[in-house]
Amino acid sequence: MPADDLERVYRWGWLPLIGGCVAVTAAMLAASELLFIHYGFADPTRLQRVLHLVRGAVMSFALALFAGWYMLRLRQRVEAARESLRAQQAAFARRAWKTEQAVGLGALCRLLVHEISDPINGLSLHCRLLERAAGRMEPTDAEPVRRIAAQLRDDTERLQGLAASYVEGNRAPGSSERYQDLSLEEIVRAAVAAHPCPEGVEIVVEAASDLAPVHAEPDRLRQLVEYLLRNAIDPPAGSHRVRVSMTNDGNRVLLAVADDGAGFEDPASVFRPFYPASSLRASLGLAIVRDVAREHGGDTRAANREGGGALLSVRLPMGERTS
């Protein structure tokens, strides 16, 4: 039985039961009365009347006992069903949380791998410069410099290997087919439908009728859209109306999210990791958006709107149009 039906029976089931008890008792008493009349007890004695009333009372009591037992059983069943539902909900929430954490962690790791690629590159090239500089020194001076440079180079290569293995290890099987031509509108609408929108916040989605597909990795594109939405909706943005629009922009597809919230303190810094520092999720979300956009050959922009609120835009490479 569905949970709602059980709940209804649990709340209102006593009404027909009590009604039923009263009706059955009344019917039996009426039947007894008819029997008295039929068998000529038109003028029953006091004893017969008392017996008649006692019989009615016993019958009512028995029916009430049955109704009580039935309600108790029903209550137990409803409680068991509630408990089972609660356990299922908790298990589902745990699984959803774990999945979200895993996905977020994966995105964070990829972001960090990409963020450290520039410093590792600089370190690696400077190691080479150091080795070359050592080659121009006196042999006695050069030896410790060479040793340090070699150690640095080893460490850099180890770091590089770790980063590369992480990126390679996270490639989906058949990685050459990861990128597909996707409908950005479908992904945005699905994300809006799935996102628990806070009360008082309205999300408006608009897409150009001739919107081209984007060439992207499905999971990464979903991540990008999800983090963009969260930034606009979740506190401390404080938005009431969020407008998500999609248009063609040359050989790119432009995804813009405009809100009427508090805006950015420093629009130039919003895509940096750990900005703003108020919450971990908010501070990494937009950095991941930029990372995903870059990974796809796209770019990101952030600005404050003239009338108040923030405007985030992401340009992504266009896929092939089917018509």
């Binding site: 690629s117 590159n121 690696s124 590369a164 990128y179 992207a216 796209g298 490479p317």
Partner: peptide, 20 residues
């Protein structure tokens, strides 16, 4: 491994090198 790198080659870049 991004589409941008592949597109750069399609535009006529000679080769794509990773960082480092």
């Amino acid at each position: 491994n991004s589409p941008a790198a592949a597109t750069a080659v399609a535009y006529g870049a000679r080769r794509v090198f990773p960082k480092p």
